[in-house]
Design a protein around this nucleic acid. Structure first.
Lengths: 112, 112
DNA sequence: ATAGCTGCAAACGGTTTGCAAAGTG
DNA sequence: CACTTTGCAAACCGTTTGCAGCTAT
C-alpha cells in the first residue's frame, strides 16, 4: 500500500485504507507492522515540523522532501547532492554519519 | 538560558534549570514561553527521529545539526551550502520555499 | 480597573503495550 | 502443541489548555 501511494500518509490514513480489505484489523497492528517495516529498512518514517503525526514513505531511495506548512502535503524532490557531504561532516565533528535528511518547508501550489 | 547553552535541550531540562532561579514556575509556562519565542523567531524548535521530545536551539543562524542516534546528543555543524538550492527546489516543485532543514544522523565520538 | 500572565491540574492525542484469544504449522 | 500474531482497551507521555487568581500599568 505504501509503495503504491505518493502522499506520504500517516498511520490513520493507512489504517482506513487497509480496513477496506481487512475490516477487523486494529490500529495497534498497523503501528506494529509499520514499526517492523521501518526497522527492516523497507519503509521510512518521516517526522515533520508542523504536525504531530509520523508520516510514512514507501520509497527508501535517496531523495528529499518538500513539505507544505499550510496543508501538510509532502512531495518528493530529487537533488544531486554529493555524498561527500557526509564525510565532510564526519571530519568536522568526529561523528560516524549513517544518514542524513534534508527537508524543505514552504507553501504548495494549491495553497499559494 | 537557551542562548548560553550548546546542548539543544528539551523542555524538561529547561524547566529544571529555570527552577533554580524561579522555583515556582510551572512546566506549562515554560512551554508557553518557548512557543512565544519560537513564533517570534528568536529560538528554533528541533524535532528529531529518535526521540519524542522537542529540542530547542537558541542559535537561529543558518547552521545544521548532527544528531547521535545512540545518546541523543545534538551538535552544530556549519556547512557552506548554496542558498540557490532553495530556488532549484522551488523551480522543480512550484512550491514557495521558506526554509530548509538538514540533519545528519550517526554516532557521536563518546558513543563510538 | 483592566488586560495579560501564571500555576495548577486536567485534558489531549498520537503512539505503545499487556493480555487473552486466535491463528499458524 | 508450542510459537507468533492480533484485536481490544487501557496506559503512556510529551504537550496543550481552561480557569481562577495574581501581576502590572
Amino acid at each position: 500500500l505504501l509503495c503504491s501511494t505518493e502522499t506520504h500518509p500517516d498511520a490513520n490514513w493507512i489504517y482506513d485504507k487497509v480496513r477496506e480489505d481487512l475490516p477487523h484489523i486494529s490500529l495497534g497492528t498497523v503501528y506494529r507492522t509499520l514499526s517492523v517495516l521501518a526497522d527492516a529498512g523497507l519503509i521510512q518514517e518521516l517526522y515533520c515540523f508542523n504536525a504531530p503525526q509520523t508520516r510514512y514513505d514507501g520509497d527508501i531511495s535517496d531523495h528529499y522532501h518538500v513539505i507544505c506548512t499550510s496543508c501538510g502535503a509532502i512531495q518528493d524532490v530529487s537533488l544531486d547532492i554529493s555524498h561527500e557531504l557526509n564525510e565532510t561532516v564526519s571530519a568536522k565533528t568526529d561523528y560516524r554519519i549513517d544518514k542524513r535528511r534534508l527537508d524543505f518547508y514552504g507553501i504548495c501550489p494549491d495553497c499559494k
